[in-house]
Write a protein that binds this DNA or RNA. Sequence first.
DNA 1: GTTAGGGCTAGCT
DNA 2: AGCTAGCCCTAAC
Length: 645
Amino acid sequence: MAAKQCASSDIASVERVVNRWIVDYNLSLALELFKKQQFKDFNEVRDVLSAVMNRPVEATSDMPLKIRILQFLARINDGEKLDLGYDPDMPVSPLESALLILESMTEDFVIPQQDCEYAFHSLKVMIVATFIKNGKFDKATEMLNKHLMEPADRVAAQKLIAMRFEVEGSDGADENDEEEEIIPPLNPQRDPVPLKPCKPPIIQRSRLEAAYKALAEDEKTFVQLEQEVETEIQDVGDLHLELPSDSETEQNDLCQRKVCSPMEASPAEQPPQTNGGPQVQARLLSKQHYTVARLVTEPDSQFSSQYSTALEELETEAGTKNPPKTQDECREKEQQCPVSDDETVILTPKRPRRSKKTAGRAAARVVESSDSEDNLNKKEMREETPPSHPNQSNSRNSETSEQGASGLQDDYITPEKRPVKRRSTSSSRKKRNSETSEQGASGLQDDYITPEKRPVKQRSTSSSGKKRSSGTPKQNPSALQEDCITPVKRPEKQPSTAPSEKKSKTDHNITPEIVGETSVTESSLESPPTTSPQQSVPQMSSTPEQASSSTKWKSLYKTAKEGKVTWTSDEVDFLQKETRCNESFRSNSGLKRRWTEEETQMLKEGVKKFGEGNWCKIRSYYGFKERTNVNLKDRWRTMKNQKLV
DNA sequence: GTTAGGGCTAGCT
DNA sequence: AGCTAGCCCTAAC
């Protein structure tokens, strides 16, 4: 009898360990798939996790964070499906739910503040955008005021409105801007930031822009927000928010810009001749097909500074040659080519240039600090940081080798119990993390990862009955019950995985995705550095560090492109390091950066759009923050030499 | 301030 | 040694 019990105990132990492996693997896989934007696969892996975690799973210290991340991503993935609910008690949208999870993650785990802030803001913006997109303007307003309109924004908004008031008072007769005509005069003293504007879409748009300008100085995501807002508003037939047509004058754009941006109302504002901000943003957005999930995974969204800078700079010039596009145009671009032929600007005639060579330039070459732009180029590239750092949770949970991966109780997400920040609950969760040594990975209740269609309030599957009862020791650590992970309402179509895009993004820029796609296995990653000689790459350079890096990089990439490599750990590390450095290498005069395929593509598009020679515009429009105009010109020259163009 | 075009140089072949 | 990519420099605008 005792032997039987012992045997079953062994089986249970084995199962828990194996299940833990499976969960670990699938969690990693899910993250990877999400990163690769393979959302259909992501959902499938989520299903697998759901099934596995219904079984006993040995928990590890970092499992709570991993599961929390999966929950977070699942909600992001379902972010646009407002009819999905993760919490039967509180009808929050998936993105709101994600926000709550993010809050809890920041409380329970050590996550870099910068990442947190970025994720928070992106999420908040997307919440508002999603509500607007779905016509839930009241909700959008509520979210906007709740999440985005910080006191600073309100001040900025007040300035904006005050300025609008002045503009209307002084220049009102001259204005024929469509938007200005329909925006009712606002009394800045009475209602600087009206909660219930007479024309909600207009006010929301202003607020969005205000919030964007004030908060998201580096937010590319707001570009999408703008596009979605404008598209949606037009879709619902609100003519008031139509963008100015191509025939509208630059003065109209000027007026529009003057009154829309709170930052422009601030002392350190942009030059008054700015225009085209939202339109430019819309065009920027149209360059890629975004999904909510992409906003989280896109490298560009992580490395976020490009487009906002482009916006700031473009405001000075973009609208002159490129009047705002209509929504249809934007949609067309979004669907296909980011730059259509009809919007290509007629090339300006080249100025006649001298043909003589520069004389005495060597003597004139003085040791002079380059301009600020060049200095900027020499700044270290910011590292792309992952949304979270699972290992960082170890410090808090390290003592619980058998502890549950949980700490994610069903109540921690419900707004009733966490009205605003729910900081009070964090300690209890931490305590649970450390105390539930036998609890396993559970604690992730049904409504955490899996949304349900709102009308369906009760779980229909058996898993609802599988909720871990507190009375079952060694209870199933799974927090990811089957219906918890699997949405009740499955997405009918998954966002495009865009494999070609991934593929095209490789020439000079080996991304982590590529590393992941090229047979990087755990074993390879964990293998000792003594790799097989045939996999090593010959070092050909005489300069030990940089040159060898460059050589090795090229060799590795060439081999990788042929798809016949098994990466060794040092190679992977090397590639990751190279990626982090953005393919920089030292020159005698500073840091040189290889042009990535993405940059090259943008340059091509820019030349197509603005014409060769308009490097400043191209740079601004595409946010070549780390490239000077001359860099663009030189690259274009190189491309022409290569007959790439 | 921006652009064109020549020059320079590290790295590669 | 020759080639190339990326950057620098300067005149022209």
